[in-house]
Design a protein around this nucleic acid. Structure first.
Length: 853
RNA sequence: GCGGGCGUGAUGGAAUGGUAGACAUAUCAGACUUAAAAUCUGAAGGGCGUAUGCCCGUGUGGGUUCGAGUCCCACCGCCCGCACCA
């Protein structure tokens, strides 16, 4: 009796796939190409179950497409620049480069045993000089094409560590290392002109039919197109040069309800006032402590400072409004100034209540509604309301109609212009950090900002840097900054900012098509392999990474690095869920939670304990696996206990791929048991008497064809969990079958083929055992015989008034009238009807019968 | 705060608007075994009933429909994103 020994089987077949270079992608005109890509990982050092799930899904698609006759490109790499490497350097004194490359080696060693059908020859990391050097070349092309520019922008500044902080490094308004209150500070930084492409990026969303609707909607909201009115208030007693305040509003119909003007603490007027007035300066300084995230700004207590300046209402110059500096107004959006209409905006309402400002309604639910409000009245823009202080259009109209009428009216009377604005801001790419792609420009006293010459690329990161003092090591480096000006040749200094890691991930998919090329891309290769046919990754990238990549595809097309057809780089997108696990905790003497690893928990009759007789452990419902909660299962342990096929099988079963899957020890064990069962089944069939007669050959083959059909549909539609359920059911059928050897052999070989995208090693082994030709991996995908899928009779449920009362078995091709008769003739139906005359009988062929009385 | 999503047995979940709970876990029963494990067979949403059966049931409340877990509206709860984490 042989046994299922995954460790041995898996190593053997991985060697064969490697030897035969089965997954090496080569351009070819014979087959249609298929490019499947999973979002590449950050090299944290350990692969986790989320990676296993992500790459298993991609591998299922890749192997399936391979079997259906496609020329598949399935590459892998690392998104290797980033903050974590610098943190490791600071915390543990390891050089970011050494740390990163060590992690990459470790992760590759952990990935290989999973048996993914990847073209490892295309592997690269974004921190490879070869990659980021080409990225610098791209940057220079973008610069020349006018797609990049410099302007001031706000960063989180730690005044003690004297360094820029990432949002992640800000904890409750304080620097994570120093604990100092974080301030906002302005720096001159580089920006990509993504906002110029707002309209196009928005419109093209409609063409992305194979993207999840929710991702398209999120991008649509992020781009945030709005039509509104831009106009100016004229000021009274304002500093010179500020006799007007430009404001932008999406609700010009509420203009008569304006009761104050608010400006951002970063507004030019606020800055002028700040210079001469200590109180204003103090207020603005307070505002700048909030931090730079939109979330922090929006959730902070709404504060205002009355500047004493007044403005005149454009329609009633006798009506004067106060000008406040307000902490919730962003300088980046609109004009950095708003008018407040407390009656129709809850935030303005609270602000007005706090500072004793008037609340003036411009519209009401109806003519006889009271004018006094206890909260802002904010109906849907499509709802018809009564304008008690309207100035354009009808008295009764919807918000949308009123907005259009108000814009027309204001344009005609010269008060302002209708303007389309986008919420999307230009993409700031400068980072004041070491571990990133250096921005290839030089600062020259005589020539200003000068792009580095392409022949001087790559601008390589120096290795000899230290992290023992605060700030950017590139700034402190004794010689790295020194370089001759590319324009005049005089001594000049390199830019020490590096690029946002989102730049690295915005074109790696194109680089995979020619990873060693001496140019960013090679037209022949990108033209052949692009677009990515199926992109798979976490929904957390729904906005930024995917939007930036879409912008980059356009910019690369403009600069000649991608064909026009690759404007939208990802034909289909799938966003997969996370792997979760229960959390186990006890409390220390101060009541603080102490977390425990799943392998330290012992299950007893009285519940979960720490050790056999240890203290009882509280079980918290499943959440994303995280080191801090210790609810992690290391894929390496699972592979050594059960094998890669079990891990792959389990992460695909149970939950639909777009949702989270809960890792359970019992589930993993069940997956292993099932694979063992399949293996034993193969073993048993191999030992069958080849000539002994069997019964039920046809039923078995019918079930097999149905399974081919269902599994194929499941894979095509990302219903991996459903496909696996069908495979379970078919395995049970085969196990019980008394069919002859030939039919059983055919069934188990087909089962192996259908399982091969999920459990490729086991499938190869079964295939070989049954004497299949070559590799199951290269065998062509089985086709369901349509004739075997239809049966002669169908069982139809019969409902009476929508409640199921009976079942009838009728020939599949029975005409509707006959089915109706058969249903009414049924005893149970007769009994339920109890003599009542049916009013209507609905027959849905092959589905259901509903009798209505 | 704004934006997005989710809510079905004890648990993970299945279900082109058409028999709710496939498949799996946990549970229980049986077979095998001296016994246990493993393996195999079977039961199982809740309630009532000896039973053919009947009633209730997909977070809550409405609506559309011959028919709603599925579509629409409102509410409740949970999760995710918010531009320098990737």
């Amino acid at each position: 009796m042989t046994r299922y020994t995954p460790a041995e089987i898996e190593a053997r077949w991985q060697k064969v796939w490697d030897r035969d270079e089965v997954f090496k992608a080569v351009r070819s005109a014979d087959k249609p190409k298929y490019y499947v890509l999973e979002m590449f990982p950050y090299p944290s050092g350990r692969i986790h179950m989320g990676h296993v799930r992500n790459y298993t899904m991609g591998d299922v698609i890749a192997r399936y497409k391979f079997a259906t006759g496609h020329n598949v490109l399935h590459p892998f790499g690392f998104d290797a620049f980033g903050l974590a490497a610098e943190n490791a350097a600071m915390e543990r004194g390891i050089h970011p480069k050494d740390w990163t490359y060590q992690n990459i080696d470790d992760m590759i060693a952990q990935m290989k045993p999973l048996g993914f059908g990847l073209d490892w020859s295309r592997l690269f990391a974004t921190c490879d000089v070869n990659y980021y050097g080409q990225q610098q070349s791209l940057f220079l092309d973008f610069l020349e094409a006018g797609l990049v520019y410099r302007k001031n922008a706000v960063v989180n500044w730690d005044p003690v560590d004297m360094t820029v902080l990432a949002n992640e490094q800000v904890e409750q308004g304080r620097g994570w290392r120093s604990g100092a209150l974080v301030e906002r500070r302005e720096l001159t930084q580089w920006f990509f002109k993504i906002n110029d492409y707002s309209e196009e990026l928005l419109d093209a969303l409609d063409t992305l039919e194979n993207w999840p609707a929710k991702v398209r909607l999120m991008q649509e909201n992020w781009i945030g197109k709005s039509r509104g009115l831009q106009f100016a208030f004229s000021t009274i007693d304002a500093p010179e040069g500020h006799d007007r305040i430009e404001v932008y509003t999406t609700r010009p119909d509420t203009l008569m309800g304006a009761s104050f003007v608010g400006i951002s603490p970063d507004h030019p007027l606020a800055k002028v006032l700040e210079r001469d007035n200590a109180e204003v300066a103090a207020f603005c300084a307070d505002c700048r402590k909030i931090g730079t995230t939109e979330e922090a700004i929006e959730t902070a207590e709404k504060l205002g400072f009355d500047t004493g300046i007044r403005v005149r209402h454009p329609f009633d110059t006798a009506h004067e409004l106060p000008v406040y500096i307000a902490n919730f107004i962003l300088m980046d959006y609109g004009t950095g100034a708003i008018f407040g209409c407390p009656a129709h905006d809850q935030r303005d309402f609270e602000f007005a209540t706090k500072y004793g400002l008037p609340i003036i309604s411009t519209y009401l639910p109806s003519e006889d509604s009271p004018e006094t409000l206890t909260e802002a009245y904010v109906p849907a823009k499509t709802e018809k309301v009564f304008y008690n202080r309207g100035f354009a259009g009808e008295a009764h109209q919807t918000g949308l109609e009123a907005i259009d009428a108000a814009i027309d009216f204001c344009e005609n009377s010269g008060v302002g212009q209708g303007v389309t604005k986008f919420r999307l801001r230009d993409w700031g790419l400068s980072r004041q950090r070491y571990w990133g792609c250096p921005i290839p420009v030089v600062h020259c006293d005589a020539c200003g900002v000068v792009p580095e010459k392409k022949e001087n690329l790559p601008v390589e990161l120096p290795y000899d840097v230290t992290f023992d003092t605060p700030g950017n090591p590139l700034d402190r480096h004794p010689t790295w900054r020194d370089t001759p000006c590319p324009s005049c040749g005089k001594p000049a200094q390199r830019e020490t900012d590096t690029m946002d890691t989102f730049v690295d991930s915005s074109w790696y998919f194109a680089r995979f098509t020619a990873p060693d090329a001496k140019t960013p891309t090679v037209m022949e290769d990108v033209a052949y392999w692009m677009n990515v046919d199926q992109y798979i990754g976490g929904v957390e990238h729904a906005i930024l990474h995917l939007l930036y990549s879409r912008f980059f595809a356009r910019a690369m097309q403009i600069t000649g690095h991608l064909p026009k057809s690759a404007n939208e780089p990802f034909n289909a997108l799938f966003t997969q869920g996370m792997v979760t696990h229960e959390i186990y905790l006890t409390r220390d003497e101060k009541g603080r939670p102490v977390y425990h690893l799943p392998e330290d928990i012992h299950w007893t009759e009285s519940g979960a304990r720490l050790g056999a007789d240890g203290p009882e452990v509280q079980v918290v419902p499943s959440a994303k696996m995280s080191k801090s909660k210790k609810n992690v299962v290391d894929p390496i342990n699972i592979i050594s206990a059960y094998g890669a096929d079990t891990a792959r099988w389990f992460v695909l079963s149970d939950s639909p791929p777009e949702r989270d899957v809960e890792w359970t020890a019992s589930g993993a064990e069940a997956a292993f048991k099932h694979l063992t069962r399949v293996w034993n089944l193969c073993d048993r069939i191999g030992k069958m008497d080849k000539d002994a007669p069997g019964v039920g050959d046809e039923e078995l083959l019918r079930a097999m064809h149905l399974c081919i059909h269902d599994v194929t549909m499941g894979i095509e539609s990302f219903g991996f969990n459903a496909a696996i359920a069908k495979l379970y059911a078919f395995t049970a059928t085969l196990q019980k079958s008394k069919a002859g050897h030939a039919a059983q052999r055919q069934a188990v070989m087909t089962l192996a083929q259908l399982m091969s995208p999920m459990t490729p090693h086991l499938a190869e082994d079964i295939w070989k055992h049954q004497g299949g030709d070559g590799l199951v991996t290269t065998a062509s995908w089985p086709k369901a015989d349509e004739a075997m899928l239809v049966s002669d009779t169908v069982t139809l449920p019969v409902q009476v008034n929508g409640k199921r009362r009976a079942e009838i078995v009728v020939p599949a091709d029975m005409p509707k009238e006959e089915v109706e008769k058969a249903a009414l003739a049924d005893q149970a139906v007769q009994r339920t009807l109890d003599g009542a005359e049916p009013k209507k009988v609905i027959v849905v062929p092959g589905r259901i019968v509903n009798v209505v009385v």
